[in-house]
């Protein structure tokens, strides 16, 4: 078991519009991308963020950038009452705990 953070080049989060939150995991080369992508599942992401699997809207492999993209339902629309991160730029930290 290894940590994704030890091989990923980029681990980031951002709003994809006001109602969705999107995560990008990017890898330095095709080998590491291929190795990691098999073991990243919607269920793992749901567990990490303590949300329902149905709230993980998509998980896409994007080979041209050696990237895995995961999009979840935002806990609330950007800027709604109770907001903690208007841009959604600091919601990626749990991905540092991701293993493969």
């Amino acid at each position: 078991m290894r940590y994704v953070k030890d091989v990923a080049l980029v681990i980031r989060s951002k709003n994809a519009g006001p109602y969705e939150l999107t995560f990008d995991l990017m890898f330095p080369d095709e080998e590491s991308y291929d190795e990691v992508r098999q073991s990243i599942t919607k269920a793992k992401i749901a567990q990490l963020y303590q949300i329902e699997e149905s709230e993980v809207l998509s998980l896409v492999h994007f080979a041209p950038a050696h990237a895995i993209k995961i999009t979840i339902v935002r806990p609330r629309a950007s800027g709604d009452l109770g907001e903690t991160d208007v841009y959604g730029a600091q919601q990626h930290a749990p991905l540092f705990d991701l293993t493969y």
Binding site: E20, M26, S58, V60, A65, A67, T71
Partner: peptide, 14 residues
């Protein structure tokens, strides 16, 4: 990579 990766930015599906 930087140009391909940009397609991911702030989008839900590249």
């Amino acid at each position: 990579i930087s140009i391909a990766a940009h397609t991911l930015y702030e989008k839900s599906n590249p």
